[in-house]
Design a protein around this nucleic acid. Structure first.
Length: 423
RNA sequence: GGAGAGGUGGCAGAGCGGUUUAAUGCGCCGGUCUUGAAAACCGGAGAGCCGAAAGGUUCCGGGGGUUCGAAUCCCUCCCUCUCCGCCA
């Protein structure tokens, strides 16, 4: 959520930033609500002030036994009370309208974010490794999965539906090993505290991080209990500190594995084959809470931490900086990590590393204290560290051998009991 | 699921219609003392909103009601704890 004070004082900056990300929010209408709200508050508070002092006077009169005078005063105060009730209701309605407007306005991209018209204007920041050369005919991952019986695509549709993969045998074990490998890396080398959160969250949490109310259609919803299966661990992890004043002399860094559930509304028919786009997938997520002055520096550290996973696995990847038109709703700045998958001949997004500035913190009321001890909103950051299915795709397609086996990267073998090859 | 108890500042815990401007303790910050620290003593400090400021206003789990006036009385919902039931 944006700061209404900032919008009031910098309407043109806000309009320009929103235009850069192709958002058409009506800022002038919002500011009109703001003006009306403040006028109503000023009026009602003056009335409340006079009611309060009059009530004190009545208390005194009652004690002195001046019944008649007290009754006259009561009548006067009752009229003030009626007027207050009307104005209070007005303020409540204006508050609600403003909130509903603000909840649908996205974050402002930082000035440093490249301006663009769509994803083709994203910028490649750096590239790691080289595309691998093969001296045999390589297979796409779905053929490898079938040959080595890593995923049972057929039976999965029977129990749930398309997009809910059933990993089997070494495929299932590979999932578990990757989760362990990533959690161990981040906790032992990057200073993260491991969390195992609930896999469902309530509407307040979903609103805190920005999934609700705008993206309700992208989420599964357990109607009977008003709970949402998490679309990312970002939701439970970030909201862990909702309504708190945090002590963050140094960044608070937490990580968790969760399955992620996404309806992928609007993406029907895209990437239907294999593991490229799923309704349920596994992910290890990294979440940071930092003081405002530290967030830009910490964002660079965070993206390096996510990259470390790919480097250790020896995969060819690139870091993309998203342009203003492609950046996520809640993000102020965002890097994506993309793996090269030679079988499908595509760059695959396996991580999104975002700086949310104070946008989520304001929605979820996560604060810390500034140098003077005054409360201020923290900055939140998060990054996938990383999402599994596309990582598996890249591992299988890059490490496949002519004999149909797949070589396990050195770094991953301990988590697989020393296994060197799949198949 | 049933019965009972309870939700008050960072924590503990009083208050149960009108000097509550929410006592008190612990913890926290500053100071005195000390070579330094601890202890002791003195002082300070809740959050949101409106306001340039002075100041005002709201907040005792959420919502609603009674009243001139509600932390305090009533209704309702939520949550926590204890016991019972069921159970991995």
């Amino acid at each position: 959520m944006l700061d209404i004070k900032f919008i009031r004082e910098n309407p043109d900056v806000v309009k320009q930033a929103l235009a850069a990300r192709k958002n058409d929010a009506d800022i002038d209408a919002l500011l009109a609500l703001d003006t009306a709200r403040r006028a109503a508050i000023t009026e009602v508070e003056e009335l409340k002030s006079s009611r309060n002092s009059a009530s004190k006077t009545i208390g005194g009169l009652m004690k002195e036994g001046k019944k008649a005078e007290a009754e006259a005063a009561k009548e006067e105060v009752r009229r003030i009370g009626d007027r207050i009730a009307v104005l209070d209701e007005q303020v409540r309605e204006l508050d609600e309208k403003m909130l509903q407007t603000l909840l649908f306005i996205p974050n402002l991209p930082r000035p440093c974010v490249p301006v663009g018209k769509d994803e083709t204007d994203n910028v490649v920041v750096r590239t790691f490794g080289e595309p691998k050369k093969f001296d045999f005919e390589i297979k796409p991952h779905w053929d490898i999965c079938e040959a080595l019986k890593l995923v049972d695509f057929e039976r999965g549709t029977k129990i749930t539906g398309a997009g809910f993969p059933v990993y089997t045998g070494q495929g299932a074990r590979l999932q578990r090993a990757l989760i362990q490998f990533m959690l161990d890396l981040h906790t032992t080398e990057h200073g993260y505290t491991e969390i195992e959160p609930p896999f469902v969250c309530n509407a307040a949490a979903m609103t805190g991080t920005g999934q609700l109310p705008k993206f309700a259609e992208d989420m599964y919803h357990i109607n009977l209990d008003q709970l949402y299966p998490v679309p990312t661990a970002e939701v439970p992890l970030t909201n862990l500190y909702a309504d708190e004043i945090m002590d963050i002399d140094r960044p608070v860094k937490i990580t968790a594995y969760t399955p992620c559930f996404r309806r992928e509304a609007g993406a029907a028919g895209r990437d239907t084959r294999g593991l490229l786009r799923l309704h349920q997938f596994d992910k290890v997520e990294l979440v940071n809470f930092v003081k405002p002055e530290d967030s830009e520096k910490q964002h660079e550290i965070l993206v390096r931490e996510a990259e470390k996973v790919l480097q250790k696995l020896g995969l060819h990847y690139r870091v993309i900086e998203l342009c203003t038109a492609d950046i996520g709703f809640s993000a102020a700045k965002c890097y994506d990590l993309e793996l090269w998958a030679p079988g499908v001949q595509k760059w695959l997004e396996v991580s999104s590393v975002s700086n949310f500035w104070d946008y989520q913190a304001r929605r979820a009321r996560i604060r810390c204290r500034d140098a003077n001890g005054r409360p201020q909103f923290v900055h939140t950051l998060n990054g996938s560290g990383v999402a599994l299915p596309r990582l598996v795709v890249a591992l299988l397609e890059n490490n496949q051998n002519a004999d149909g086996t797949v070589t396990i990267p050195e770094a991953l073998r301990p988590a697989l009991g020393g296994l060197e090859k799949l198949g």
